[in-house]
Simulated scan of single mutants.
Amino acid sequence: MIVCFDIGGTAIKGAVAHAPDDIRPVPRQPTPLDDFDAFVGVLRGVIDRAGARPDCVTLSIAGIIDPDTQAAVVANIPCIHGRPLKADLEAALGLPVLVANDADCFVLAEAGVGAGRGHRVVFGLILGTGVGGGLVIDGRLINAEGGFAGEWGHGPVAATEAGHPPAALPRFQCGCGQQGCIDAICGARGMEKLHHHLHGETLTSEEIVNGWTGGEARASRTIDVYVDVIASPLALVANVTGATIMPAGGGLSNSDALLAEIDRALRQRILRRFDRPLLVKAECAIEPGLVGAAVLGLGYRPA
């Protein structure tokens, strides 16, 4: 039995997990942002309710663990940002602690109990406000010790010309400090910037996708350019990792038509040929961070 948490800037979701299909959530609690002792207190309260000593405690966080310093980079929760979080929590709780990025927990959930079951190499991608991802090979998270692997949304690789016929594109500024990242043009906010650049019109990503599926010309042009931009770097990810399934989560993945269109373009650009979809909708739609944290903890073996 383990205790797992999905740590967000607003709320902490906790659960007691006995198996991947036996995860028992407890009521969520507000996240203490500036008080580490209070943060530990929330975790301890859930642990105390478990009824027995857990094998370990696992956390899904909206940040990363620096593999060189072991410091947590979680900008929206100041009380844990910059801390050696694993060591500090183990000292405070007296239990082994595992910490993973939320996108990594998402792909762990998909590989363990979702769309990636039965696949050796699973690359999970987030198509939400921004773009993220994670990689599991033979059931093991590549970022098991922390790190940046899977962050395919960052790096100045976005096309400066895309679509049919080609449209000239700017290198949008990314939140990571670079220009031309996939995150800056292919997340929901990026799609909105792309639409405004092409048409001078401000719409939400949902309105753009709905307009496209309804046959509206400007929205259709935006999606044509968007798919051309995103498919090539995603094809490179597929070639480099050898992934045989790519479950997608996040708000944009709610459009089956959009996923199918990206998948069609993706499979035309990769070396290995699939006669089935490679990019698929994630199956762990409810609490994937918590499910992934549970999968991570249930696979824990003491050193």
Rank of each mutant, 00 (worst) to 15 (best):
H119M: 01
I126K: 10
G128L: 05
G133N: 11
I137K: 00
D138W: 01
G139R: 10
I142E: 00
I142P: 00
I142F: 02
I142A: 02
G147E: 01
A149T: 08
W152T: 02
G153Q: 12
H154Y: 05
P156R: 04
P156A: 10
A158K: 07
E161F: 04
E161A: 15
E161V: 03
A162E: 12
A167M: 12
A168E: 15
R171G: 03
R171L: 13
R171D: 05
F172N: 03
G175I: 12
C176R: 13
C181N: 04
A184Q: 10
I185R: 01
R189M: 14
G190P: 07
G190V: 01
L194E: 04
H197Q: 15
L203G: 09
S205Y: 13
E207G: 03
E207C: 03
W212K: 02
W212Y: 14
A219Y: 08
R221Q: 15
R221H: 15
T222D: 10
I223L: 13
Y226D: 04
A231E: 09
A231H: 08
L234G: 05
A235F: 04
T241A: 13
I245K: 02
M246D: 03
G249I: 15
S253W: 14
S255M: 00
D256K: 12
D256W: 12
L259G: 14
L259Y: 11
